[in-house]
Nucleic acid binder design. Structure first.
Length: 566
RNA sequence: AGCGGGGUGGGGUAGCCAGGUGAACCCGCUGGGCUCAUAACCCAGAGAUCGGUUGUUCAAAUCAACUCCCCGCUACCA
């Protein structure tokens, strides 16, 4: 369990044209939060930052639909999303937004540095333009008939029906998705970063990075091998950060370029706020500091290529990503989440149904680490009812109630035998395994390890049968309950990153000082002293008594209520 | 189409990079035990030849080739 000292934990910035769904949350904010909480527990200095990505065409269009300004839309959505993340237990030190002045200034300054370093050039191109809306249209904002399969509503970049890649000019009967009129072609000028200049340093960085998981590493190296092309850093969009380059009036910065720079600006903003304006450099330049990024698989190149290239191009010796943990996707009952078709569960709805800790544990236990995973109520019920409630919750409850009813609520005095020591040793090994899994971002496995500690406790209780011993050999019974109390304590710590509220409740029930979240990991194996008084336990979890159909109905009811209040 | 990831008992996953101890774990199922505990817990058992084909090897879930299927990316969605 090495201590790194400084750890910057970040998650992909959610694009807040809509409220995120569970699939958006699992690999980014939630994974980041679990890992950040772990590092805080082992006593590292952790900064967890992210923010709302709020610029760009889709936000402008969504605002137009709602009849508000983009700023009004993102003010509202940012406030809602920030509040929802808080309710989910996300322990951000700074959850900011791309409209933050600190962010805007940082992006403009850094891009000017890159410009002055000679990595940015401008070039004229032809783009689709809608005369009616007076705006340039990204490829996806033009639809028409597919020239290959004849399917309706093929997008300018791809036909969803036949899967073929398209150019907007291929579309038959093209129309603007906003107003329906036929787009025209117009010449415009954009500024590009010449990524190819960084091919060699990127290859070296990626090859030497030991933490980077295979999916991210292979994908990224392949991208580079195929040849890095210049990437436009400007857009013809009003809603964004004004491009700082000479002659670029009216252009704004491409959202992905500014969003990844947000990791730095959010750190700066936080350090300013706490009155230590230079401190951010400890996270970004001190080579002992680690930066961890939690993203979905669709996001890999932005974090393994674009961000490192931007950091290198600034010429300032920034720390490049230490690890980019990329998850696959969470599907819903075998289908991709879709807002329009209401496939999926949104993060506000989930909390209306069950406590955040249930969802947090469930999502981490089914975290799509090697392949897409599939949400189903059956699996949700399995994780909550069998793992959390039956195995873990019931073990804790039977231990603590026994101590209360038979030992006056005091940790009994033990006389440990080799068998008892072996159980404590097994738990110690599980705690160490969990620590390693947190550090390797194998969170699904860490969730299983947590439950397996409960299993060890249950086995031990069943073998020893202290409910019999208490009548025949009180000292032996005392020893058994002493041991299981230590197992409960270990569970408290290991569960803390996953279920912060539940772990805290347990910490209080064990009548321990302060909060479990104050760097207590090393105390996981420090025994509760004989004679230590504990409180009367309350069940930590409740079994969900509903089948799939009823759960679907409950979700539908939540949606109906939400629709009415909106 | 190209590139990356994946396809493992009824369901959910690990193992594959560094080939070799009975293919591991959870749920479910069957049988048994226990009664401290939230009808929870514990033990035992049945069930997969690892998408398909071919090859390399003394030995393949693991390596190679081909093939089918799912997901992502392909640089102007974010």
């Amino acid at each position: 369990m090495p201590n790194f000292g400084k750890v910057l934990v970040t998650s992909a910035w959610p694009y807040i044209n809509v409220i995120p769904h569970l699939g958006n949350l699992v690999g980014s904010v939630l994974s980041a939060d679990v890992v950040a909480r772990y590092y805080r527990l082992i006593g590292d200095e952790v900064l967890m930052v992210s923010g709302s990505d709020e610029h760009g065409t889709p936000i402008e269009v969504e605002a137009m639909k709602q009849g508000v300004t983009p700023k009004e839309l993102t003010d509202r959505n940012h406030a809602r999303v920030a509040e929802l993340f808080r309710k989910w237990g996300a322990s951000f030190d700074n959850y900011t937004r791309t409209e933050s002045p600190v962010h805007r200034d940082f992006v403009q300054e850094t891009l000017m540095k890159i410009y002055k370093n000679g990595y940015i050039f401008s070039k004229e191109t032809q783009m689709l333009y809608c005369e009616h809306d007076q705006r340039f249209l990204p490829d996806r904002f033009v639809e028409g008939k597919c020239p290959y399969c004849g399917g309706e509503r093929a997008r300018g970049d791809q036909c969803d029906l036949c899967g073929r890649l398209l150019e907007p000019s291929f579309l038959l009967e093209p129309y603007c998705v906003i107003c329906g009129n036929k787009p025209t072609v117009k010449t415009t000028k954009h500024w590009y970063i010449d990524l190819s200049r960084f091919a060699n340093p990127l290859i070296q960085y990626l090859s030497e990075n030991k933490q980077l998981p295979a999916n991210a590493k292979n994908f990224s190296l392949n991208w580079i091998k195929e040849g890095l092309k210049p990437r436009a850093v400007t857009r013809d969009v009003d809603w964004g950060i004004p491009a700082p380059f000479p002659g670029a009036e009216g252009k704004t910065i491409y959202v992905w370029v500014e969003a990844v720079m947000g990791y730095v600006s959010a750190t700066i903003e936080y350090c300013k706020r706490i009155g230590e304006p230079e401190k951010w450099k400890e996270f970004w330049f001190d080579k002992a500091a680690k930066t961890l990024y939690f993203v979905g698989k669709d996001n890999i190149p932005f974090h393994t290529i674009i961000l490192p290239a931007l950091l290198l191009a600034s010429g300032e010796d920034y720390n490049l990503p230490w690890n980019v943990s990329a998850t696959e996707f969470l599907q819903f009952k075998g289908e991709k989440a879709s807002k329009s078709q209401r496939i999926g569960i949104w993060i506000d709805e989930a909390l209306e149904l069950f406590p955040a800790d249930y969802w947090r544990f469930f999502l981490m236990a089914t975290r799509p680490e090697s392949k897409d995973s599939n949400f189903s109520w059956d699996v949700f019920l399995e994780k909550v009812n069998a793992d959390l409630n039956d195995t873990l919750g019931n073990f804790i409850h039977r231990t603590l109630t026994f101590i209360n009813s038979k030992f006056n609520g005091e940790i009994p005095q033990p006389k440990l035998t080799a068998e008892d020591e072996a159980v404590l040793q097994a738990v110690k090994e599980k705690v160490e395994t969990a620590a390693q899994e947190f550090e390797e971002a194998k969170l699904q496995s860490a969730a299983n390890t947590l439950i397996s500690i409960g299993r060890i406790g249950n086995q031990y209780l069943n073998e020893k049968e202290p409910w019999k011993l208490v009548k025949t050999d009180r000292e032996k019974a005392a020893t058994v309950l002493y041991v299981t109390a230590q197992v409960v304590k270990a569970i408290t710590l290991v569960s803390a990153p996953f279920m912060p509220a539940t772990a805290e409740q347990l910490w209080q029930t064990l009548n321990l000082d302060g909060s479990v979240h104050e760097g207590r990991w090393k105390e996981a194996l420090k025994p509760l002293e004989a004679g230590h008084k504990i409180a009367r336990p309350k069940p930590l979890f409740q079994k969900i008594d509903a089948d799939e159909k009823q759960l679907d109905e409950m979700l539908a009811a939540v949606r109906e209520k939400k629709a009415k209040s909106a």
